[in-house]
Design a binder for these strands. Structure first.
Length: 106
DNA sequence: CAAGGGGCTGTCA
DNA sequence: TTGACAGCCCCTT
């Protein structure tokens, strides 16, 4: 791993870590807050590579369409919606939900 | 070096 | 409201 790569990854972790329970942020938003505009896809990659027992709230990151980026019915989708529901985020079906549960970044 | 593919996005028809 | 598409960043073939 290059130092740059590590640095970016850690910045992303730092932002995701700050998303409050019951709120969600988009990949692009996380990237921007991490000072890495344009790195939305990389955010997804970083979250994908998290250890299974991570304490990072990866489930609070969704796409700009206001939906979970896993195919409906897939394991990933199920696990993410479960964790979110546990925090009071009942449904993520569109941009409206982003306005409702979206994290402003404080 | 080329090609393909990901937890993505903004734009436009 | 959708869906197609070109960009974007990075990794694997």
């Amino acid at each position: 791993m290059s130092p740059d790569h590590d640095d970016r990854r850690q910045r992303i972790w730092g932002v995701v870590k700050r998303i409050p329970p019951g709120r969600v942020a988009t990949y692009g938003q996380v990237a921007r807050l991490a000072g890495l505009p344009g790195y939305a896809r990389f955010v997804g990659t970083v979250l994908r590579d998290l250890p299974k027992d991570t304490r990072l709230p990866w489930h609070r990151v969704i796409n700009a369409q206001g939906r979970i980026s896993f195919p409906p019915g897939s394991d990933g989708h199920t696990r993410q919606s479960e964790r979110l529901r546990r925090e009071g985020v009942l449904a993520l079906t569109g941009r409206r939900d982003l306005a409702r549960y979206g994290w402003t970044g404080d």
